[in-house]
């Protein structure tokens, strides 16, 4: 027959625990020593409850509304897509028209070559998010469901700005190299600045390296940056972003960091001028 407890239960540990508990209890009852802690825990619990209730309510509401308004939501989605398509088309048309007017004003002889303004709108198929958020390769793939012939290096628009250039086509997909890709170069200009901006390899960032001794450079953070049109690929004077930082790169160079206006992660539709469109 066992003559002792099944485990070693030293009274000392229990006595210490008991004394500690009693001390805590006494200090809390008498002096409210743990009132802030309790308040914090209660507030946190309430907050968690509120959040969880909110989440459940939202889920329930969303689910029920989804059930009730399935057709309306579908219609809404289609209309939204249409609006986005129209907006992108409109922006490209507007810019194209501006450019056309400039060209008409300065080169009347070229007016016949500006008749075509075809713009094709493509829906995004995928974005290489893993690389986009960490690495230097920033690519987007667009769905080319109508098998439209798309030329290489054509400018790609999204939202209200340029996001990149077509690189290649694979099956029914168009590969677009984004401006923030490290291998992409974009001629830009600002008030006192002309340079070839290279992709930074970080989302929505491109940069220029300038000579420190360049006395013409008087730009400041926040200044708007436009395409310079140099090279003839991109339209001129399209706002692409703003100067977000000017840092010393080396003894003789400064790095001008430009944050792009268009965020590829937020865009669904991309516009590309078709091969028949104007080559400016």
């Amino acid at each position: 027959m066992a003559r002792s407890t099944p485990t070693y239960t030293p009274v000392r540990n229990y006595a210490i625990g008991f004394s500690l508990s009693a001390l805590l209890l006494f200090s809390d009852i008498s002096y409210g020593a743990f009132a802030p802690l309790r308040g914090f825990v209660n507030a946190s619990t309430l907050y968690a409850k509120m959040i969880s209730n909110g989440i459940f309510e939202n889920i329930g509401e969303t689910f029920s509304s989804f059930q009730r308004n399935k057709i309306i939501l579908q219609e809404n989605k289609e209309l939204k897509e249409k609006i986005l398509q129209i907006r992108t088309k409109d922006f490209i048309h507007r810019k194209d028209n501006e450019e056309k007017i400039q060209i008409i004003n300065f080169h009347k002889g070229l007016i016949n070559s500006l008749k075509n303004d075809d713009v094709d709108i493509y829906k995004i198929a995928s974005i290489d998010l893993r690389n986009y958020l960490c690495c230097s390769t920033h690519r987007v793939f667009l769905q080319n469901t109508r098998n439209v012939s798309v030329g290489k290096n054509a400018p790609v628009f999204a939202g209200r700005s340029i996001v990149g250039q077509t690189k290649d086509t694979y099956l029914n997909f168009i590969e677009v190299i984004l401006l923030s890709d490290t291998s992409h170069v974009l001629p830009i200009k600002s008030n006192f600045l002309y340079c070839d901006a290279r992709g930074k390899g970080k989302p929505m960032l491109i940069f220029c390296k300038l000579n420190k001794n360049n006395k013409n450079f008087k730009n400041q953070i926040g200044d708007v940056v436009y395409t310079s049109g140099l090279g003839g690929v991109f339209l001129k004077d399209i706002e692409i972003g703003f100067i977000s930082a000017i840092t010393s790169f080396s003894i003789n160079e400064v790095e001008v960091l430009i944050t792009l206006k268009a965020n590829p992660l937020e865009e669904t539709f991309y516009g590309i001028m078709s091969e028949e469109a104007d080559e400016i």
Partner: peptide, 22 residues
């Protein structure tokens, strides 16, 4: 509502049960 109350009783009942578990 107070810190230490459950601690105190948990440790007390724990000791008591350990003592007379057989």
């Amino acid at each position: 509502n107070v810190i230490g109350f459950n601690m105190l009783f948990f440790i007390a009942i724990s000791y008591l049960i350990h003592l007379y578990v057989f």
